[in-house]
């Protein structure tokens, strides 16, 4: 079971605003969905079921990229060729 406090904590970590009124709904829906996910508890780990993965890296070579103006074209109110962001402190 997850509590309202658990959902609020995750929302803070994920930078997703959640209203107090929504917390109850999300908490109840999460518990229903997580109950369903409990079917995975009976999945055996290791052996044949262990996922096989390998990373494939490209060479670290400089290649042409987007022109500077194109990179900024969707940013709100760029300044002196830089993207603006909310204040940090």
């Amino acid at each position: 079971m997850v509590s309202k406090e658990d959902v609020a904590h995750i929302a803070t970590i994920a930078d997703i605003g959640v209203d107090e009124s929504e917390l109850e709904l999300f908490t109840s829906q999460f518990n229903t969905i997580l109950d369903y996910f409990d079917v995975l508890d009976s999945v055996p780990v290791g052996g044949d079921a262990a996922p096989l993965r390998s990373n494939v890296f490209r060479n670290d070579e400089v290649v042409p990229s987007l022109p500077h103006d194109d990179v900024l074209m969707n940013a709100t109110d760029p300044e002196d060729g830089f993207i603006r962001a909310p204040r940090v402190i």
């Binding site: 990179v71 969707n74 909310p86």
Partner: peptide, 14 residues
């Protein structure tokens, strides 16, 4: 920040 809806630049970033 880089695209889409504009953020509120006055608020703290989180």
């Amino acid at each position: 920040v880089r695209f889409g809806m504009a953020p509120d630049f006055v608020r703290l970033w989180h």
